[in-house]
């Protein structure tokens, strides 16, 4: 599988899949209950239960290897593609179990994902954004044009690229590429946006634009972001969950968790006292 195919399978349904896209009426509440996850014999998540409220930003923090990205990938079933990976417990989207009650391809329209490194397709800027709607249906040219403009406007990219829509998305700067990827994700009207360290490869100005976007998108999406940047978590999130060694140690409103954590492990992590 080459790189583009990999990106396609991560962010869009497989070729041939067709699902009816229902525009999001707002974010969906995501609820995880008693999630254990295994890679073969190795257990990576232990009894994780976490509520991620609709139309809020929830940040997942913790040291590398703590399971936060693994947990994130359970929400849109990306772990299904990893041989030997299985989990127990449940994850629901507005009460519907993502594993048993929502078609995988429909799930990918309801739950979008933005990755650490911008991964625009080797297509034009227009086609990058139009990619999802085209695969999910047969929108008219005008509807497609409107969708592309709406999504590029939403991520603050329209004025920068409106005269270059036929140019390759790969020609944009890193920050613009990441916003293009977010616009591509928005084009199928997801209810939930998963972001896995979305600014770790960006400069401070681009980071600031993407952070603004996260807060803005939370008005009508549920945003769940994995970040190693604790200042970013404090800037953008409403709730924060701290993971350590596959366990959810503590979750609280962000101001509370960062100012007066209840658990010693959280305090030690936030203050750099981990040995």
């Amino acid at each position: 599988m080459d790189e583009m195919d990999d990106n396609l399978t991560e962010s869009a349904p497989a070729a041939g899949a067709r699902a009816t896209v229902t525009p999001a009426a707002g974010g969906a509440e995501v609820v995880a209950r008693d999630v254990d996850l295994f890679y073969g014999d190795h257990q990576a998540l232990f009894d994780v239960s976490l509520d991620m409220p609709a139309n809020k930003v929830t940040a997942l923090i913790g040291p590398s290897g703590c399971g936060k990205s693994t947990f994130l990938r359970c929400i849109n079933r990306m772990n299904d593609r990893i041989a030997g990976c299985r989990h127990t417990g449940s994850i629901t989207l507005d009460g519907q179990d993502v594993d048993t009650q929502i078609d995988e391809y429909l799930l990918r329209t309801r739950v979008g994902m933005v990755f650490q490194r911008p991964n625009p397709f080797p297509l034009s800027i227009f086609d990058n954004v139009a990619y999802g709607p085209r695969r999910h249906g047969k929108p008219s040219r005008e509807a497609l044009r409107q969708t592309v403009q709406r999504c590029l406007e939403r991520v603050g990219l329209w004025d920068e690229v409106k005269d270059d829509l036929k140019k390759s998305g790969l020609g944009l700067s890193g920050g613009q590429q990441q916003r293009l990827c977010i616009a591509r994700t928005l084009a199928v009207d997801p209810q939930v946006l998963l972001m896995d360290e979305p600014t770790s490869a960006l400069d401070p100005i681009s980071t600031s634009l993407v952070e603004d976007l996260m807060s803005d998108l939370a008005s009508d999406h549920t945003v769940i972001v994995v970040t190693h940047n604790m200042q970013q978590a404090t800037r953008v999130s409403d709730y924060t969950a701290f993971f350590y060694m596959g366990k959810l140690v503590e979750t609280a409103p962000t101001t509370e968790l960062f100012s007066r954590p209840k658990e010693k492990q959280t305090e030690d992590y936030l203050t750099g006292r981990f040995s």
């Binding site: 604790m230 404090t234 960062f258 100012s259 007066r260 959280t266 936030l270 203050t271």
Partner: peptide
Amino acid sequence: QQPLAGDLR
């Protein structure tokens, strides 16, 4: 250092 939690307090 941008301290947090108990250090920030």
